[in-house]
Nucleic acid binder design. Structure first.
Lengths: 178, 178
DNA sequence: ATTGCATTTGGTACTTTACCAAGTTCTGTT
DNA sequence: AACAGAACTTGGTAAAGTACCAAATGCAAT
């Protein structure tokens, strides 16, 4: 179902989920609370999102899309990567979804595709093709680093310069784009 | 409370949690099911583990300890790392805990310490001090890679050789120990 | 014996999810 | 317009789970 074809109520549902996510965190994204916020019945929510995970996934997708405005991602991919990966709420959300992911391969590849989006965004920046495995390793590295960040919130998130230094460890260096 | 000082019930509780984890996965670790398995009341469980996360954390700790029998970890740290990180059940468990971690700094540092355990295990193997930041980066990298593994279960987990190759990207090379 | 503490029970209020059966609204067709 | 069928919406419910609380029990030191 393309976004444009979706019933309005689905958009309202996802929007409510986004708001709850930003205001109260992951735990607020429940059928009960989302339904209350957009004025429909909880049972109606399971009509569009039969499993609780389906709703989570939809909100996650929307959140991801919102965080990746294409122009800024192209202009400053490291900045966007940093903003998305080291936002604890967003990262926790991602981890929760990965942790609870049902075995359905469709659902899994939906999330996996989001991961590959990074390779497409970073490829041109580092002068690599988006299938370059080093890009995936770099993303792995940053994700792992972000988890460490969640565990030790006292410290600052790595700066863009530090992230570039990490990339350099894998011989990934920004190319001059003019 | 040291493990030795713990009431026997607590050991039984954690043990039941471990069994459920291995048999039915993360979702089985609930007060209700654990209580049923070790023949106590659910309300009694909240006496020892006031929050549901506390129980999760205890089972996670036990599971981690069980997976790191010291001798084999020293003898073959990469093998142990591989076994622990690329076991989907275990990794999901870890991610779930990180995702749901309450803000209590004590609890967070408990989990963070488990991460640092890896640095201590890997340090001698790579001829580095356990505070060497490269070790942490390597662990980050492997963790990130493991997440990717969860998302694409078709593929095999990286072999030990591949993990060593990853380490080499960070100039981490095993030292000869004789 | 009694006091104080840890343990254990039983009960309850609340939240969340996944159903279902029954309505209602919308749509295209005749 | 009238109809049939699909899409949508409601209300209700059963099951599982969490976090409380008040009361009972056991146990140890005074």
């Amino acid at each position: 179902m393309r976004e444009a074809d979706r019933p309005l109520v689905v958009n309202r549902i996802v929007q409510a989920g986004l708001e709850l996510l930003e205001e109260d965190g992951i735990h607020a994204i429940t059928q009960t609370q989302v339904a209350k916020r957009c004025g429909i019945r909880q049972s109606h929510l399971t009509y569009y999102f039969p499993k609780a995970t389906d709703l989570l996934l939809a909100v996650f997708s929307a959140s991801h899309a919102k965080a990746l405005p294409l122009d800024s991602a192209v202009h400053d991919p490291i900045g966007v990567l940093r903003a998305v990966m080291f936002d604890p709420t967003r990262m926790r959300f991602f981890l929760k979804i990965v942790a609870e992911l049902p075995d359905d391969p469709d659902i899994r590849s939906t999330v996996a595709d989001h991961a590959h989006t990074w390779a497409h965004t970073l490829g041109p920046f580092f002068g690599r093709t988006s299938s370059d495995p080093d890009l995936l390793i770099f993303v792995d590295m940053v994700r792992g680093r972000a988890i460490r960040h969640i565990l030790r919130t006292e410290g600052q998130a790595p700066s863009k310069a530090e992230l570039l230094a990490l990339a350099a460890r894998l011989s990934l260096r920004p190319v001059n784009r003019g």
